[in-house]
Design a protein around this nucleic acid. Structure first.
Length: 352
DNA sequence: CGACCTTTGAAGTAG
DNA sequence: CTACTTCAAAGGTCG
């Protein structure tokens, strides 16, 4: 279980502390990246590009689906994410540093002795042991799982995304390390770390509606009526169309989402959605504050939807209650027809 | 440049 | 178990 404080502010403080640690790592990684990041790490949009071309279910489902290209041959050897150093528990002088520092330390050590990078299980703290669980508490269980026993899969974790890239001269890296340890966090560093933090985190797999949006938003945008509309308005329309979508059509998206989840689980067995919670925590907290005040109607709508679900019943998809729309109340107020009752779609255009 | 808006669904947290 | 929260996509808007 999670060992966490009940108070939000305490948790926030912990997160802040972790972020501070991360900032150091990111700053270091930013500098390393500046020395030559493989093209597959970052996409044009700055988002992380999943390394496997077969990752997306649509890659198999639709020949038209074209994920952002990547360049798997740029880095020789096994997967660039498979470098195990980050998984190595801190059992060396770098242990007092953040995991990235430890990785960097081992990089430098590896330059002196290649055998340094081998995985001696005897030096690894047992899962759950004090050595594996600093301060007797694991604020990031997913991370620590990755750090210890699991790693059954070479691509088992988000942490591999966070590895500094290889190829920099050791002397240069040592210089980077010194600068990072001694240097203050400049605005430039903070920016770089924020960008890297976005790039390196593993995103949630898309749910059925997200797949529906992804596939149908461009088509909806092409329609004259929606060309000039804002994205949020398009999403409203997409929500309506989703409700109007025949069950069998919806099921196809549920299947896509299921497959996406499965692939995600295979690729990142120890990943948890919780690992992404802190990333936009500040933003979402702000948003939540706003919901508490200004946009209370939305909050009420959600509560109404819960009520609606209770009285209308929820459909079960993939063993989970998918409800007759969490926001059914909202939709019902804006959409003719009964929510959850498939009606013929005037122009769904949602065949993929 | 980042937060916000807006949707649904999945998953996490809290009680 | 229930209720609530956060994050997935996306692109225009706003501060």
């Amino acid at each position: 279980m999670f060992c966490r404080s009940d108070a939000d502010d305490v948790e926030t403080a912990q997160s802040t502390h972790q972020l501070t640690e991360d900032k150091k790592e990111v700053a270091l990684e930013a500098e390393l990246e500046a020395k030559g990041t493989p093209a597959f790490i970052a996409s044009k949009s700055g988002a992380f590009v999943k390394p496997s071309p077969t990752y997306h279910p649509l890659a198999q489902i639709s020949p038209n689906f074209a994920p952002v290209p990547f360049f798997p041959l740029l880095v020789p050897g096994p997967s660039p994410y498979a470098v195990p150093m980050r998984l190595q528990p801190p059992v060396n002088p770098a242990a007092s540093l953040s995991p990235s520092y430890a990785a960097l330390y081992m990089q430098q050590a590896a330059a002196l002795s290649p055998s340094f990078l081998t995985f001696p299980p005897s030096t690894s703290p047992l899962p759950g042991s004090p050595a594996a669980t600093p301060k007797g508490c694991n604020p990031f269980p997913g991370f620590m799982r990755n750090m210890t026993a699991s790693a059954p899969h070479p691509l088992n974790s988000i942490n591999q995304m966070r590895l500094p890239q290889m190829g920099s001269p050791i002397a240069s890296m040592a210089n980077d390390l010194a600068q990072t340890v001694n240097g203050a966090a400049t605005p430039k560093r903070i920016k770089a770390e924020a960008r890297l933090q976005r790039e390196r985190h593993v995103k949630k797999p898309l749910n059925a509606f997200m797949w529906f949006m992804k596939k149908n938003r461009p088509k909806l945008m092409e329609e004259l009526d929606y060309k000039e509309r804002q994205s949020a308005e398009l999403n409203k329309e997409l929500g309506r169309r989703w409700h109007d979508l025949p069950k069998e059509e919806q099921q196809r998206y549920y299947d896509m989402a299921k497959e996406d989840r499965q692939r995600h689980m295979e690729k990142y067995p120890n990943w948890s959605a919780r690992e992404n919670y802190a990333i936009n925590k500040k933003k979402k907290k702000k948003n939540r504050d706003k919901i508490d005040g200004k946009t209370e109607s939305k909050r009420n709508a959600v509560q109404d939807s819960v009520w609606h679900t209770k009285i209308s019943g929820a459909s079960i998809v993939n063993g989970r209650s998918v409800a007759a729309s969490p926001l059914a109340a909202v939709v019902s107020s804006t959409t003719p027809g009964t929510p959850g009752t498939p009606t013929s779609l005037s122009g769904p255009d949602c065949i993929y």
